[in-house]
């Protein structure tokens, strides 16, 4: 595989991300070990950066033969929330460099850009973050299977109620055993690894973020992106009057839109979806009040439909 397009260490991870258009989403797949195509594999799914108002949300999957599951422990995959940044980075690097790992473990990420998160959630037919998330997870698993990974068991970490999600995944992947659980990343090492790949990718995506808007990032950075973080709050206080924020920000977060409103950004009103012409219920008999009106109705000038349909009207004042 072209070395430029292979992520082997944190440096190549950064370079890979830098080459992408940060307003768009992308998918990265590691090379798939041959053994994953023959042996029955377990596959873990987890996400990083769901809550923050800044930066991408990253979905990650990791897979390895069920028979080799113990190497996940050797790599140090444990409850990913218990690991610090350095430990996560180390596990990520080892996963991609140690022979015992690269011979049996594969992983992939879907980096969903903040721009895409905003535009999905603010479409005419709104797409919730849950839908975006599920679609991302499903498409990563599908691609793994299409590329020959012999997926036997799927483990998914979820924040919402697991039952519905589990039923949905079972219907899509009938030949796989599916387990959707809360805090799966602390229970299943393969989910922990998926979580680490996602988290490390998100952290580095933020590190190499290039602002096309020439935004001056303050010395203390933009914070964790979590709405409660005072550094993030301060970062959001600076904006362009019309466009608001740079595209590192998820405009669909109320934290972002509230800040714009509170600090008197220009108000913008989008045309709403036409909700069908309002039809009044016609009554069979005359209304009571009709008897008090003059019998001869004042003829109102009605514009011809040609003009109505074309939104043409007289303008006297502009």
């Amino acid at each position: 595989m072209d070395s430029l397009n292979t992520i082997k260490c944190l440096e190549s991870l950064k370079n890979y991300i830098k080459r992408q258009d940060n307003s768009k989403s992308f998918v990265y797949f590691s090379s798939i070990p041959d053994i994953c195509k023959t042996e029955k594999c377990i596959l873990g799914v987890d996400e990083a950066g769901r809550g923050p108002v800044l930066g991408p949300m990253v979905y990650g999957i990791a897979f390895c033969p069920k028979s080799n599951e113990s190497i996940l422990k050797d790599l140090g995959c444990a409850d990913s929330k218990q690991l610090n940044e350095q430990q996560r980075d180390d596990i990520f690097v080892n996963t991609n460099q140690k022979d015992y790992s690269t011979e049996s473990i594969g992983w992939a990420t879907n980096v969903i850009s903040p721009n895409e998160i905003s535009t999905s959630m603010l479409r005419r037919t709104k797409r919730s973050l849950n839908e975006v998330s599920m679609d991302s997870a499903i498409s990563l698993i599908k691609t793994a299977i299409e590329n020959g990974v012999n997926v036997a068991e799927i483990f998914v970490d979820t924040v919402g109620p697991p039952e519905k999600y589990q039923a949905k995944l079972k219907a899509i992947f009938p030949s796989c055993k599916v387990t959707v659980a809360k805090k799966a990343d602390s229970t299943y090492p393969i989910v922990s690894l998926a979580s680490i790949c996602a988290k490390v990718s998100r952290d580095h995506a933020l590190k190499v973020w290039e602002f096309r808007e020439n935004v001056e990032v303050p010395e203390d950075g933009f914070g964790s992106g979590y709405p409660g973080d005072p550094v993030t709050k301060r970062f959001l206080r600076n904006f362009e009057p019309l466009f608001g924020y740079s595209r590192i920000v998820r405009f669909s977060w109320s934290t972002a839109s509230n800040q714009l409103e509170e600090n008197n950004a220009v108000t913008i009103e989008f045309e709403e979806e036409e909700e069908g012409s309002e039809k009044k219920v016609k009554l069979a008999s005359k209304k009571m009040t009709a008897f008090f009106k003059s019998e001869v109705p004042v003829k109102k000038f009605k514009r011809h439909n040609f003009f109505k349909e074309r939104f043409l009207e007289d303008v006297i004042d502009f």
């Binding site: 096309r212 009057p241 740079s246 108000t267």
Partner: peptide, 14 residues
């Protein structure tokens, strides 16, 4: 969309 303001904006960058 309707914008209730007039002014100079950074359209190239944003």
């Amino acid at each position: 969309a309707s914008v209730n303001s007039n002014g100079i904006i950074k359209i190239d960058e944003y």
